[in-house]
Design a protein around this nucleic acid. Structure first.
Lengths: 137, 137
DNA sequence: GCTTGCCTTCAAGTACACATTAAGGTCTAT
DNA sequence: ATAGACCTTAATGTGTACTTGAAGGCAAGC
């Protein structure tokens, strides 16, 4: 499969696929005789994995670190698990934040009045959370 | 309240507050006699609103458009509601995507093997979704 | 009167994640 | 054999969302 077909299959642009390869987010891709990339299903799966993690908010840099660990020969399953679990925690927090914002918007929609501004109670709660986060650092 | 206190209260940097004002995400802030910003709770609430929507993935540009509509004199409640509802839909989709990725990672953690790559079935499902999205455009 | 610490504006710099362009190679069809 | 549609690398450009730096003003404390 050439890069264009891979692009169409994954929804990731050709330029982005080359970029991912260069940045070691996906393995080095085999080449045809004339030097064109020949992409197989293993690569497609890796691209798809990258896309999912990117959509979930993982940065190129974090992804590279994880993948390098993964590709290393040593048995670092524990470390890999830890990283996955860390990422999972980040994503769950993101999801919860998103849910809060959704609740907030739903509230505003239901009480459609002064809806652009946070209410006093909400503000106090947010301030409390902010202070808490700071204390946790 | 000066800009530094406002920054500490909201967790948004002084520079970012100035930037938000310049970009009309928050109203023009009152000044003291010497020209320093004097920030009241109304502004704090607006900053907090912006922070929430930003964290939920709303761009500066979309936010500005929404806020400009809101600040306009005409009665455009319906339009505002529509925009809020649109944003709500975007956020819910984001939350669901995030949940899918979380499920995916959890699965990988539980079947810790070949976990970096998407399975064949998942791949087929993703391809299906991709085709569907394309068809919807 | 000088340092410290806050503030101001305006311009320029930065990080991320690609996208685009340039210059050229290969393959297929007409 | 020339066009068209792919491909390659390398360098440069782009948009977003700020951050940082320069140059200066104001007020308090030593």
């Amino acid at each position: 499969m050439n890069i264009k077909e891979a692009s169409e299959k994954t929804g990731v642009s050709s330029a982005a696929i080359r970029y991912y390869e260069k940045e070691s987010l996906i393995p080095e891709i085999d080449r045809t005789e004339v030097g064109n990339r020949d992409i197989d299903d293993r690569i497609i799966r890796r691209i798809t994995f990258v896309t999912q993690m990117r959509a979930a908010g993982m940065s190129i840099d974090s992804l590279r670190r994880y993948i390098q660990l993964f590709d290393a020969q040593e048995d670092n399953t524990k470390e890999q698990k830890a990283i996955l679990q860390e990422q999972l925690a980040v994503m769950e927090e993101k999801r919860d934040d998103l849910q809060s914002a959704i609740d907030h918007l739903n509230y505003k929609l239901n009480h459609f009045y002064d809806h652009m501004e946070t209410t006093e109670e909400e503000l106090r709660e947010l301030e409390r959370q902010h202070a808490e986060k700071k204390a946790n650092q």
